[in-house]
Amino acid sequence: MIRVLITDDHAIVRDGLRQIVGETDDITVAAQASTAAETLDRLRENIVDVVVLDLNLPDRHGLDLLLQLRSAYPRLPVLILSVNREAAYAIRLLKAGAAGYIGKDGAREQLVEGIRAVVKGEKYIAPPLAASVAMHLVEDGSGSRHEQLSDREFQVLLQIAAGKPPRQIAADLNVSVKTIGAHRAHILQKMGLRNNAEIVHYVVTNKLM
């Protein structure tokens, strides 16, 4: 039996995912969480085979949690569940260590297929997005400006766009305010942006949140 931990901040979504999984004979929901902190607690309390992770959590961004999970539980596959259908965004998360990526509007079959695939050590991208990802990978050019950022810089980019002040971002990422300032400076330089307003505009325009 495949044991799943579902992390999503909406109870109705978790209930829906549990119902989908409940219709199978080989998958069960072993635990649920609504925040990054709860996810870490559930992993200490339960043995699971895969984490189904929504990125928009109230306490930390899912990318930050993904990186921590990959470090603390390197053999535990993480299947991303996201409303974002941008190929570049999916690629960023796969490079960060996600085992698979599924859109929240995807068919229930994709969730079941994805769970089964990543538990076997395979990568899984939902079919509607797979073609876009493949096309993005073979296209010439430097790609989107945010692809130049490191994973940590990308995290800070999203946190700034969410309107969080430097002290809160520093606390969320467990670094100093000075470090956040340095990351912000690198982001502006690499992306050719001038201020936080332009960061917000870029993130919204490129549907990164």
Rank of each mutant, 00 (worst) to 15 (best):
Q168G: 00
L69H: 06
N56P: 02
E45L: 11
L66M: 12
N174Q: 14
D172N: 08
D172F: 04
A182V: 13
D49A: 04
I187D: 01
V13C: 08
H61W: 11
E122D: 15
V204A: 13
N56D: 09
E147P: 01
K190R: 15
L40C: 09
K120L: 13
A72Q: 14
M135N: 11
T7P: 01
G100K: 02
L43R: 09
S132A: 15
R116V: 08
P77G: 06
I91W: 06
P74R: 07
L111D: 05
A87F: 07
R108K: 14
L5V: 00
P58L: 00
P166T: 00
T24F: 05
L137S: 15
A87Y: 07
V177A: 10
I160V: 15
A171M: 07
A130Y: 10
G22V: 08
E45A: 15
A197Y: 09
L111C: 07
S34D: 08
A117K: 14
I91D: 03
Y89F: 15
N196F: 01
V203M: 11
V21W: 02
D140M: 11
I47L: 08
I160C: 02
L63V: 07
P74D: 09
S34K: 10
I20K: 07
S176P: 04
L173M: 14
K123R: 13
P74A: 09
H146C: 05
G192T: 09
A130W: 05
A171T: 10
Q148H: 10
L43M: 12
L173G: 02
V133K: 09
A96D: 07
L111N: 03
G181H: 07
H146M: 06
T179C: 04
L129T: 05
E86Y: 06
G106Q: 11
I180H: 01
N56Y: 09
A126S: 15
E153C: 08
